[in-house]
Structures are given as structure tokens and as C-alpha cells.
């Protein structure tokens, strides 16, 4: 499988002097198309910093990030228009659905398409197709406040998928959901990876769903390590 995103020797430091905090210490990670990767770790371990670095939102001072074989960030410098990469190639899902309240479910999905210059009937059809794919066909014209938490999160996933991004980054997407709906969402990510060939990186605290993931990475004090076998990730010592 082709590598979608590769990060090499990322280093990110917040503050300076006595308040200096190293959030990423020579972190390297690579995710392939169709792979679902989990990112575990306690609060403050650097998970979100890594996710925002992979999402080209928060550039590390050192290291290199390549996207589909092309280097886009090197030693804190953007080598390409990062907004354009995010627009066309990265889908984001957050802890909260972060839907725009004055848009319907369909319009929230269409917004991602419109940002990528896809408008009109084709965009409308794509939004309906995605909502149907995620079981929300009958909720397309509902506003966020008319949807349950799980439905809102599925709309957010549909929005993330709108432009067929090769990379989906999710930051604790099940934190606001009960365990049953949380598992549904995680399995949905695996289905998306399998069926659409996207690489999915999920920051999670939920150890009960780790069997869904192909790879599990752990962060601690800015250091990333990979568990050799996700099946062993249920080990008690790994629990928070």
C-alpha cells in the first residue's frame, strides 16, 4: 500500500527557558492508504500536537512531513500552500462535531465541497450520497440541533469525506458519545479506510475499541512508540 503521510523526526517545543515544554521529540510516523491507526496517550503527552502537525495546522520546528511522497513541510517551513493540501487531501473529525449551526446536515457537507470549488448539483448529490452512506439520508435537511450527538458526529464524518481525502485525522471523535455509539463510529472509520482507501489516524482514549485499528501508536512525554500488535493493546498496564 502507498504511504499517504510520513512524518520524520518532528520536534516541537512550546515556551522557552524555564517554561520550555518539548511536545514532540523526534517523532516519526507513517500511515498507508487503507490503514486505520490509533494514537494513544495521556493528556499532555503530545497527541494533539502531533495530530495538528500531521494536519498541517501547527508546524514543528524541526523534521519533515511528506504527503503522498511529496515533502510539504521541512524544518518549520511550508514548501507548498498548506491550505490547499488541507482543502483537497485532509478530512478532519473532532471530539465535538463542530457543525455550523445555521446550516443543515447536507449544507454542512456541501460546505467542504464548496471550499474545494465544488458547487451546484454535483455537490448536492455528493452530500446526499455521503449522508446516505452514513445512514443519515432522512436527516439531510435537519439542522444540527435537531440531530443526536451520534448523528452529528456522522455528519462531521460525512463532511470529512466529502472531497475523497486520502487522509482523515480524528481527534477523540467518540469522547462525547456513549460506548455503543463510540464503537459504531470507530468501525465506521475502518469501513471508510477499507472501502475508500483512506488513511485514518485517530486520537483516542477508548481502549475498548482498539481492536478496530490496524496499528496503535502510543505517546508519552512527546515520544511516540508503536505497539507491535494491536491485539495486545488491551493489556491492563496500557489502560489510563
Amino acid at each position: 500500500m502507498a504511504t499517504v503521510i510520513r512524518a520524520e523526526a518532528l520536534r516541537k517545543v512550546y515556551g522557552q527557558g524555564d517554561t520550555e515544554l518539548v511536545a514532540l521529540r523526534d517523532v516519526s510516523i507513517a500511515t498507508e492508504a487503507g490503514e486505520v491507526a490509533a494514537l494513544l496517550g495521556p493528556s499532555g503527552s503530545g497527541k494533539s500536537t502531533l495530530l495538528t502537525a500531521l494536519g498541517l495546522l501547527n508546524l514543528p520546528e524541526r523534521g519533515r512531513i511528506s504527503f503522498a511522497g511529496r515533502t510539504v513541510v521541512e524544518d518549520g517551513r511550508a514548501l507548498v500552500d498548506l491550505s490547499a493540501v488541507r482543502r483537497s487531501s485532509i478530512g478532519f473529525v473532532f471530539q465535538k462535531a463542530n457543525l455550523i449551526p445555521f446550516l443543515t446536515a447536507r449544507e454542512n457537507v456541501m460546505l467542504a465541497l464548496q471550499i474545494n470549488d465544488r458547487v451546484g448539483r454535483a455537490a448536492d448529490a455528493r452530500a446526499r450520497e455521503l449522508l446516505g452512506y452514513l445512514g443519515l439520508a432522512d436527516r439531510a435537511d435537519h439542522h444540527p440541533e435537531q440531530l443526536s450527538g451520534g448523528q452529528q458526529q456522522r455528519v462531521a464524518i460525512a463532511r470529512a469525506l466529502a472531497n475523497h481525502p486520502p487522509l482523515i485525522l480524528a481527534d477523540e471523535p467518540t469522547a462525547a458519545l456513549d460506548s455503543h455509539r463510540g464503537r459504531d463510529v470507530m468501525e465506521l472509520f475502518r469501513r471508510i479506510a477499507r472501502e475508500q482507501g483512506a488513511a485514518v489516524v485517530v486520537v483516542t482514549h477508548d481502549h475498548r475499541t482498539l481492536d478496530v485499528f490496524d496499528t496503535v501508536h502510543e505517546m508519552e512525554d512527546g515520544v511516540l512508540s508503536r505497539r507491535p500488535d494491536p491485539a495486545t493493546s488491551h493489556a491492563p498496564e496500557a489502560s489510563p
Binding site: G55, L57, S83, A84, V85, R86, R87, S88, I90, F92, N98, I100, L111, A112, I115, N116
Partner: peptide, 16 residues
Amino acid sequence: SHEIALVKLMGGRTRV
């Protein structure tokens, strides 16, 4: 602010 940040995060151009 939140909605604007979301649009920017999704790669929305400044002109949007």
C-alpha cells in the same frame, strides 16, 4: 469565530 476557524481549518481561502 468558531465557524470561521472551521472554514480556515478545512482549507477555506481567505476570500471565502
